[in-house]
């Protein structure tokens, strides 16, 4: 495998670590929130890594750290092998030209007071990549690339005049217009209508084929991850529970949580109407006050005594797949059938 272009190395992110004296004295301190806890991810050039998790899993935090919008409490971010965790000033600006971001909410992605053309030209102006006289041409070219035609008409429109799908295409155009090496996409289609989603996903795949850009694709939906990604990392309460090649991970998940996610995904081409369901013991956990042992054990249908006391090791399942479960091998073999 090639060297990774971007690496998140044992990241840890804690919010509210220091509540302040007055709050502590009166016992009103907010408990610290562990948003990320030992997260290691590698992005390989030209490939897509999907990070899958529910709200509070730390997937968004991981994305924000990867773009250095936030700095981790501990751990490193490596870009092309160099430590960029503490970049500031011009070096940071140069990094930002290489690592771009697409956000979840397309309706809020563009400044309502600027035309689409002005918004798209902004990154080019910021990095001084294109002379002023050629800005318009570059903008129109990019609009064509994201299939918004007639491009000139879109360039002069205001965001309020466009639909969600069109806005998200423009957000993608803005991220790609300065030809970054890596794009972090945080749930780029989850707020779009189903029939529009696939168009945006197909567009992103097409752009990757043409430009060789690398994606970190953050989503709550395993099936979207499968469609978009070469590799998938499953996160839960700030930690990566399982990671591996997309197909291998879905056909042979080694973590009960991954198995449950696969089972819970409604099948949109249902030929079988009824499915087997396990009533889960616990409710969604919170990031403050992590359980002891395995962080998933309160909701795990397979939890044993060892899960409650011992943090599970990261088990290598071969072919680049790892899972943080005491019973990873068994789960991969037998699924959620209870091991002895």
């Amino acid at each position: 495998m090639t060297d990774p272009i971007l690496t998140l190395d044992t990241l840890r992110m804690v919010y509210n670590a220091d509540p302040g004296i007055l709050a502590r004295l009166t016992g009103r301190a907010d408990p610290p929130v562990i948003a990320a806890d030992d997260v290691t991810l590698h992005l390989h050039p030209g490939k897509t890594l999907a990070v899958v998790g529910e709200s509070g899993s730390g997937k968004t935090t991981a994305g924000r750290i990867a773009t250095l919008q936030e700095r981790p409490t501990s751990g490193r971010v490596l870009f092309e092998g160099k430590d960029v965790t503490d970049l500031t000033g011009t070096a940071l600006k140069a990094f930002r030209a290489k690592v771009q971001m697409i956000f979840q909410n397309p309706y809020d992605a563009l400044n309502p007071r600027l035309t689409i053309g002005q918004s798209l030209a902004e990154p080019l102006t910021l990095h001084g990549l294109v002379p002023k006289s050629e800005l318009r041409t570059a903008v129109l070219e990019m609009l064509e690339a994201v299939e918004l035609r007639p491009a000139a008409q879109f360039a002069d429109a205001f965001p309020s005049e466009l639909s969600g799908g069109q806005l998200q295409r423009i957000a993608i155009a803005r991220a790609l217009i300065i030809k970054p090496r890596v794009v972090i996409a945080d749930e780029p289609v989850s707020m779009l209508d189903v029939s529009i989603r696939s168009g945006v996903m197909n567009l992103m795949r097409g752009l990757q084929r043409n430009t060789g850009v690398t994606y970190l694709y953050i989503t709550h939906d395993l099936s979207v991850a499968r469609y978009m990604a070469d590799r998938i990392a499953v996160m839960y309460l700030g930690a990566v529970l399982e990671e591996g090649p997309a197909e291998a991970l879905i056909s042979g998940a080694g973590h009960p949580y991954t198995r449950l996610l696969i089972q819970a995904a409604p099948d949109h081409r249902a030929s079988e109407v009824k499915r087997q369901r396990i009533r889960l013991p616990g409710d969604a956990a919170s990031q403050s006050g992590l359980p002891t042992g395995c962080r998933f054990h309160p909701r795990c249908p397979l939890a044993q005594d060892v899960c409650r006391t011992k943090v599970p090791p990261r088990v290598d399942l071969g072919t680049g797949q790892t899972a943080a479960c005491h019973f990873a091998e068994e789960v991969r073999q037998d699924g959620l059938a209870i091991p002895a």
Partner: peptide
């Protein structure tokens, strides 16, 4: 055809990975 798009637009976890159907982004 609209129902077909709705069914065909979402990726699946089972079966072969195929390109998804999509609609143009109109209002």
């Amino acid at each position: 055809p609209y129902t077909r798009t709705l069914i065909g637009a979402l990726p699946s976890l089972t079966g072969p990975l195929e390109d998804l159907a999509s609609l143009p982004a109109t209002d």
